[in-house]
Structure formats: C-alpha cells, structure tokens
C-alpha cells in the first residue's frame, strides 16, 4: 500500500514538474525573443535564436500535455458522453482513454525511433545554432512519455476505480462568474 501511495505521489509530482518545466520554456521563449530584438538594436548578432525558440516551443507543448490533460484543458467533443447514462458513459470513456493511450504510446515508440534516427544519421540543425537535433527532440519524447503514462494512469483508474482523475479547473475552464 505504501509503495502504491509512493507511486501515486511520484506520478503526480512528475505531471506537475513537467508542467512547470513547460512554463519555464515559455519564459525562455520570451527571453530569447527579447534578446533577439536587443541584439538587433545595438547592432550585435545573436545567431540561432529562431531555432532555439522553436525547440522551446516544442518542449513547452509536449511537457505540458499531461498537466493540461489532468486539468481538463484538452478539448474533446462530449455531446455523446453527456447524453448517455453514467454506466454507458464510463465505457465510452474507457474507449476514449484506450484510444488516447494507444495513440500516445504509438507516438512514444516512433518518437524513440525518431530520436535514434537523428543520432544515427547525425541530424544537425540547418540554422545558425548547429544544434544536434536529438537534444531538443528528446524533450518532445520525454513529454510524450509523460503524457502516455498519464493517459494509462487515468485508464487504469477508470477500469478499477470507475472514474478517471481529470479535475476540470473551473477558474481555468470557464472565465464566467
């Protein structure tokens, strides 16, 4: 039981930490763009900034996927889910989480191949940054892994507990009231 509780808090910490890391990537994008402007105004060169901003963009998106899922930010069409009785809705939810989990682990598997290809064929950024691309791509993969784990986590809960753990944040979701 203690092991399970440990796992639970480790997982929750991971989702949150990835989200925080993603938000730091957003700040990094802001800083990079400001640096680019400052460099231009004082006549200096800051090479590779668009590329770095792009890498941070990908990292920010993927690392935040799980956090966004847990907070109900990802969009879905819930007409059917709301229309059917709860016990059927549960099985539709199982189907959705199963599809989502499958798609995301598929992304993880091919993401792993993708990063390995980048190392193997020595794929280097074509911009002025000359970054070996496997480095920024690894953050995409890491985010995909965390998202896949989160979806699996919800699916298991749904199967054994009868409900997933998505908490729709009302302040986040609806800006009324």
């Amino acid at each position: 039981m203690a092991a399970l509780r440990g796992l639970r808090s480790a997982l929750d910490f991971t989702y949150l930490a990835a989200g925080v890391l993603a938000s730091l990537c957003l700040i990094a994008i802001l800083v990079l763009i400001v640096l680019q402007m400052l460099a231009r105004w004082i006549g200096e060169v800051a090479p590779g900034i668009p590329e770095y901003a792009g890498y941070f963009m990908a990292a920010a998106s993927f690392l935040a996927f799980a956090n966004a899922l847990n907070r109900g930010s990802h969009i879905r069409v819930s007409i059917l889910l709301n229309a059917v009785p709860p016990h059927i809705a549960r099985w539709i939810d199982v189907w959705c989480f199963a599809i989502g989990t499958a798609v995301m682990w598929y992304v993880v598997y091919y993401g792993w191949r993708f990063v390995n290809f980048s190392i193997m064929i020595n794929d280097i950024s074509q911009g002025q940054d000359r970054t070996p691309l496997w480095i920024p791509q690894s953050f995409m993969l890491l985010g995909a892994v965390i998202m896949a784990i989160a979806l699996t986590d919800h699916l298991i809960h749904l199967l054994f507990d009868g409900k997933h753990r998505i908490q729709r944040d009302l302040v986040d979701q609806s800006f009324g009231e």
Partner: peptide, 16 residues
C-alpha cells in the same frame, strides 16, 4: 552562417 559571415566581412549588420 555563410550569409552572416558575408555581412560581417562587408561591415553590414546581419539580421536573422
């Protein structure tokens, strides 16, 4: 890099 270098060698300011 080559076009940046060209700018540098001609005294221009490279802007990405």
């Amino acid at each position: 890099n080559a076009t940046s270098r060209l700018a540098e060698l001609t005294g221009m300011l490279p802007v990405t």
